[in-house]
């Protein structure tokens, strides 16, 4: 928070209302409200693309389907038990194939014969990618197969809440052109991607904070601000942290 304030012309006291979102939302001691990333992505995308009815959020740890109607959150679905269909899967595969994460999407588009990747478990898919490599399959074909298989998995999950036009993709997955194209093929029509798909959730949180602050009014906000303290966000047990800032 101090870093954010240092890079802006704002002081902590000037902030009227703070919404925390994402996995760490419950560990933000100075937040006035916690809102899930599901609702925040919905609000952020709705402000950018009012016609979007379905959002597919592909993050580093999970992927989600979110349904919007008239700017309201009406349904959602998420997977978080398995790395398949998430950014982590692509990180592992990029590492195995020795390709930079930012390049895997573009290179997958160069494939003419996508490899058949049958297994969607991250660990087994890693083995399968290595096996294809040893068989002489090109990196591009393997990447295309990986993207196709993941798009299929994400599509099947989101289809359970019915995919309706327009569809937006958010999260780190939206920055992978190969995944976006594979999903478009599966869905059957083009999707929209926000200019900054990593922060549509933060945008939504800010919009919710703005609305809430307006509804509360200056007097209530002043009372809340007086109690608020800028404390460090703690995600780990501080006592077990080693002195030199390195984890053993």
């Amino acid at each position: 928070m101090r870093d954010v304030l240092a890079n802006s012309s704002l002081s902590f006291e000037e902030i009227d209302y703070i919404v925390a979102t994402g996995y760490g939302r419950i560990n933000v001691p100075f937040a006035d409200q916690q809102v899930t990333e599901i609702k925040c992505h919905m609000r952020g995308v709705h402000s950018l693309f009012p016609n979007v009815r379905t959002i597919i959020d592909i993050g580093g740890q999970d992927s989600k389907g979110i349904k919007v109607k008239d700017g309201r959150l009406v349904d959602f679905i998420m997977n978080d038990k398995c790395a398949a269909g998430t950014g982590r899967f692509f990180e592992v595969i990029a590492d195995v194939l020795g390709v930079k994460l930012e390049e895997i999407g573009q290179r997958s588009l160069l494939s003419e014969h996508p490899a058949n990747i049958s297994n969607l478990c991250t660990v087994f898919a890693e083995q399968e990618a290595l096996m294809r490599l040893s068989e002489g399959t090109s990196v591009e074909d393997i990447l295309a197969g990986i993207h196709k298989a993941n798009a299929c998995r994400i599509y099947t999950m989101v289809a359970r809440i019915k995919i309706e036009k327009d569809v937006a993709i958010t999260g780190g997955g939206a920055m992978n052109i190969g995944l976006v194209k594979a999903l478009e093929r599966k869905i059957g029509f083009p999707v929209v991607v926000a200019p900054e798909p990593l922060i549509t959730g933060a945008l939504g949180a800010a919009l919710i904070a703005g609305e809430t602050a307006a509804a509360l009014g200056p007097r209530k906000l002043e009372g809340m601000k007086e109690k608020r303290r800028l404390e460090a966000v703690t995600f780990f047990d501080q006592e077990s942290k080693p002195e030199h800032g390195k984890w053993h």
Binding site: T36, K39, R72
Partner: peptide, 14 residues
């Protein structure tokens, strides 16, 4: 599961 329950509560509220 917390995110699911909280998002479900938000769905109901909206």
């Amino acid at each position: 599961l917390r995110t699911r329950f909280q998002a479900f509560a938000e769905t109901i509220e909206s």
